[in-house]
């Protein structure tokens, strides 16, 4: 098994009601726990919303984000174990985050 990262793109934070947050969290937790039980969840984290810093070169640091269109902004990531890309994509398809975001699946490089 190799490590794959899911980059969670395009989180829409606008007008997410408390009830919807609760439902989404519940659905994501179910998926996550299933992955944990299967021993395939390696962890994940949200990125704090808002602007980051884009360091273009030694002289240029841009602080006024967003640097991308909102649907491309990464809002968080999680790392899972999968056999290959097909397997990783299958896992991503079960992820309820797909209902409102896109997942970019990338294989982590072996050191």
């Amino acid at each position: 098994m190799d490590e794959f990262i899911f980059l969670v793109r395009g989180y829409d934070y606008n007008d997410v009601s408390p009830e919807v947050m609760q439902k989404r969290m519940g659905a994501f937790t179910v998926w996550k726990e299933k992955m944990v039980v299967a021993g395939r969840y390696k962890g994940g984290q949200p990125l704090e919303p808002g602007t980051g810093r884009l360091v273009k070169d030694k002289k240029t640091v841009i602080t006024d984000g967003p640097f991308l269109e909102s649907k491309e902004i990464v809002g968080g990531y999680c790392i899972v174990l999968a056999k290959d890309y097909d397997d990783a994509v299958a896992l991503a398809k079960e992820n309820p985050l797909l209902d409102h975001c896109q997942l970019e699946v990338r294989k982590l490089g072996n050191m």
């Binding site: 934070y13 949200p46 999680c78």
Partner: peptide, 12 residues
């Protein structure tokens, strides 16, 4: 504040 809780708790 709720959004912060929602994202933190989802992943963690």
């Amino acid at each position: 504040a709720l959004l912060a809780a929602f994202t933190q708790w989802s992943y963690g």
